[in-house]
Amino acid sequence: MSPTSSSPPDGPGPAGPAAPVAVLGECVADAFTAPPPAGAPERSVPSLGLEVLPGGGPANTAVALARLGTPTRFLGRLSGDVFGRLFRAHLTASGVDLAAAVEAREPSTLAVADLDAEGRAEYSFHAEGTADWQWTDAELATAAAGPASCLHTGSLALVRPPGGEAVERLLERMRERATVSIDPNVRPPLVDPAVYRARLARWCAAADILRLSDDDLGHLLPGTGPEEAADAFHGHGVSLVVVTLGGEGALASLDAAEGRVRLRVPARPTAVVDTVGAGDAFMAGLLHALHTGGALGGRLDGLTPGLLRDALATGADVAAATCAVRGADPPWAHRTNGPRDD
């Protein structure tokens, strides 16, 4: 499926399919090793060059959503430092609404990526006392006050103290007026997976959509297959579970009134440069298609198997396009792949 653009409403209105998708979470400066520039003089001591790109799971999803044409509002705490200015420029240029972002005094979060031969990244984080985790209930109440068809969140902002518990409380309030979507995006170097496991049942009770990668699943429910895991998550209350399986595509499980629906879509073939931001891009493609199809705004009551399959295919296409370039640089709507036959 080729993603289609939707237009933002002319002005504020009630929550519903036409209202923006609100994305809550962190911005992270992703630093990649870079070779020295051609002609640079030799040094007498070892050195390491870094190329810094804007990243962070929720910010990546917001950028991808906006580039696809979905009206998107980012709820983040953005530092005034050099990285914070980079984030603002990137989000704004991609069409993301930053009117609800908090101007934070704390520094930005930095992650240094080490890529393996297959382009998969391992990160070392520099995140103590940084802006992303300092949410208060008052800040969140102000940031989330506008209309929204969906609140999407997850990753570190949902588990890092002191703000993680405040974000959890916001989910309960937002559920009264919008679809709630969560992507745990487990990061063992920063947070013990046991912390995620302890909170997962509460997240499923608050959420309508839960997206995990196969790596996330391995950390949260070791040895459990995607179908069995989806059944467990449904038991805690979440209606739609999506597990992305890397090169094997994605599985979706929908707990609908007429029964449980299972769907699989293959991955889109692509020449992989790296997989940074692929899961975030998949999530954006999924939410974009659900927003365009009018399924967001409530408890997914209008979600049909056909629309869900289209949404999964859109997510796979956007993820593939992101894997084909360096870093989390998702495609604009006019640069995504065309129709697919699966």
Results as ranks from 00 to 15, higher is better:
residue 171 L to S: 05
residue 83 F to A: 14
residue 191 V to Q: 12
residue 155 S to V: 15
residue 113 A to K: 05
residue 110 L to G: 09
residue 125 F to L: 00
residue 204 C to D: 00
residue 83 F to Q: 11
residue 93 A to G: 15
residue 183 D to Y: 09
residue 126 H to A: 12
residue 120 R to K: 14
residue 172 E to V: 14
residue 171 L to V: 12
residue 142 T to E: 14
residue 144 A to W: 10
residue 192 D to T: 13
residue 165 E to W: 05
residue 99 A to T: 13
residue 156 L to Q: 06
residue 184 P to Q: 13
residue 191 V to H: 12
residue 191 V to W: 00
residue 157 A to I: 12
residue 110 L to V: 15
residue 149 S to V: 10
residue 131 A to N: 09
residue 116 D to E: 09
residue 129 G to R: 03
residue 144 A to L: 10
residue 113 A to Q: 00
residue 202 R to W: 06
residue 135 W to C: 13
residue 204 C to H: 08
residue 176 E to L: 03
residue 95 G to I: 08
residue 103 E to R: 01
residue 166 A to E: 06
residue 97 D to L: 04
residue 174 M to V: 15
residue 207 A to S: 00
residue 178 A to H: 10
residue 116 D to C: 03
residue 171 L to Q: 02
residue 118 E to L: 00
residue 98 L to T: 11
residue 162 P to N: 09
residue 85 R to Y: 07
residue 138 A to I: 01
residue 156 L to C: 08
residue 117 A to P: 07
residue 201 A to R: 07
residue 98 L to Q: 02
residue 99 A to Q: 06
residue 142 T to S: 09
residue 203 W to H: 08
residue 97 D to P: 07
residue 109 T to R: 03
residue 157 A to R: 06
residue 180 V to L: 09
residue 194 A to V: 10
residue 111 A to N: 10
residue 167 V to W: 08
residue 137 D to S: 11
residue 117 A to F: 08
residue 172 E to Q: 13
residue 89 A to H: 09
residue 188 P to Q: 08
residue 170 L to E: 10
residue 195 V to N: 00
residue 179 T to F: 04
residue 173 R to H: 08
residue 122 E to D: 14
residue 201 A to S: 12
residue 153 T to Q: 09
residue 161 P to W: 06
residue 157 A to T: 15
residue 190 L to P: 02
residue 199 R to S: 14
residue 172 E to T: 14
residue 153 T to D: 13
residue 169 R to M: 03
residue 149 S to M: 02
residue 156 L to I: 10
residue 94 S to L: 10
residue 200 L to N: 09
residue 204 C to Y: 04
residue 174 M to S: 14
residue 117 A to E: 15
residue 120 R to V: 13
residue 85 R to W: 04
residue 156 L to K: 01
residue 171 L to H: 01
residue 198 A to Q: 13
residue 186 V to R: 01
residue 203 W to C: 11
residue 95 G to A: 03
residue 133 W to P: 15
residue 83 F to C: 14
residue 143 A to H: 01
residue 176 E to S: 07
residue 122 E to W: 12
residue 193 P to Y: 11
residue 183 D to P: 00
residue 157 A to P: 07
residue 183 D to Q: 03
residue 123 Y to Q: 04
residue 140 L to A: 00
residue 158 L to M: 07
residue 136 T to R: 04
residue 94 S to H: 03
residue 109 T to M: 05
residue 110 L to C: 00
residue 129 G to D: 14
residue 196 Y to F: 00
residue 117 A to M: 04
residue 101 A to V: 14
residue 164 G to Y: 00
residue 129 G to N: 02
residue 154 G to I: 04
residue 196 Y to H: 13
residue 203 W to L: 11
residue 176 E to N: 11
residue 202 R to I: 08
residue 205 A to T: 11
residue 166 A to V: 11
residue 106 E to Q: 09
residue 101 A to E: 08
residue 114 D to M: 13
residue 170 L to I: 00
residue 97 D to M: 12
residue 169 R to Y: 03
residue 143 A to R: 07
residue 94 S to A: 15
residue 166 A to N: 00
residue 157 A to K: 13
residue 102 V to E: 14
residue 200 L to T: 13
residue 138 A to D: 15
residue 160 R to K: 05
residue 94 S to N: 11
residue 169 R to L: 06
residue 120 R to W: 00
residue 155 S to N: 06
residue 103 E to D: 15
